[in-house]
Amino acid sequence: MEIGLIVLATMLAALLGWILRQSFNTQPWVAEVTPDADHQAPFNAGPKLVALTTLLAVITSFFALILSAYSLRMDLGDWVPLTEPQLLWVNTGALVLASATLQWTRNKAMRRDASSLVPGLLLTGLLTVGFLVGQLIAWQQLTATGHYLTSNPSAAFFYLLTGLHGLHILGGLYVWARATTKAMGGDNDAVRQSVELCTIYWHFLLLVWLVLFGLMIST
């Protein structure tokens, strides 16, 4: 449980530190006239970014706890290390490229360069779908070599982790599909924030995948 604990403690510490800074030198019992003009918002980000950040914290907690379970289960006697298919390296490359493409698209979109929006989004989608297809092929390769879900906990965790990560990617692709549809309709202003949020989500899932992949090939 150490992994889960450390990750959660870090997130909680950051959050509680922020709240304490907000609350430490205040005198809540003092009434003041509140001026009409707006002060600086606590985050300039806007609600969608706050919600996304919160969601990423939830997903982080989710994967950290599975990894805790992974490390606890690994220490029990019947664990046989799994040899992961080499294809995973190719898949990882596709996901890295998808993330990079999306970042490039985002940068262009921020500079109001509408022409590269749709191609960038489509390329990102293609690479991401490629990653998912690659993961499915990796599953096939594993079953072909006799590693089923029930053959060993290491294999079970492989299917579980890749599957759950894939589901999160699918969720991202849903938002991506909506943004792409809008972008193809020419509604570039509405798409800008979607692209920005997608970029964060893609980078995050890439990071999650790198951690999962690193852990699985090293054990």
Partner: peptide, 8 residues
């Protein structure tokens, strides 16, 4: 939000 993932 941080604890329910453990149940999930």
């Amino acid at each position: 939000l941080l604890a329910f993932p453990a149940l999930l």
